[in-house]
Amino acid sequence: MKVKSRIVFFIVVFGLWLLLCMAFDWEHVLIGAVVACFVSLIAGDIFVTRPHVLKNPLRYLWFMYYVPLFIWECLKANLDVAYRVIHPMRPIKPGIVKVKTGLKSETGLTFLANSITLTPGTMSVDFDREKGILYIHWINVASMDIEKATERIVARFERVLAKIFE
């Protein structure tokens, strides 16, 4: 039955509902609880597949570290793109390169691909889960070698994400 997954999912969905309406009278809470119960019974085991990892407090600490890192990289990415867009010569040298990753879990890979897309000059196009390879569109290819590209693109996030999601 995967009761734990359903309970976690219920808490998330119910909390989201309360935040969305920001009204704590009994009608809102009751409707929210009923609907959240229904949804978590139907779909609770799809979204949360490994409820045991949520218990580890270290993961939350690393997540706290990851968020400002991500926002900082995101800001740099925007200034970088702004420079390339405004520059009259359009200084780009695009291409698709391969990089390796050691992450295995679905959530970890999703976060890695999303982080890569929102950081300077790179966008994830596809990945091969068996081989652990990501295909990255790079707006300014600095190296076609798989090792060097991995170091430039993936390494700064992979270390943190492995601690959070693996």
Binding site: A77, R84, V85, I86, R90, I92, T117, L118, V125, H137
Partner: peptide, 23 residues
């Protein structure tokens, strides 16, 4: 502006995704 100025689909996606998400 990036959506207009960049040369192909992939570069346009890069410019528009990053800037528009952050903006």
């Amino acid at each position: 502006i990036g959506l207009v100025r960049m040369p192909d689909v992939y570069n346009r996606l890069q410019a528009s995704t990053k800037c528009v998400t952050f903006g």
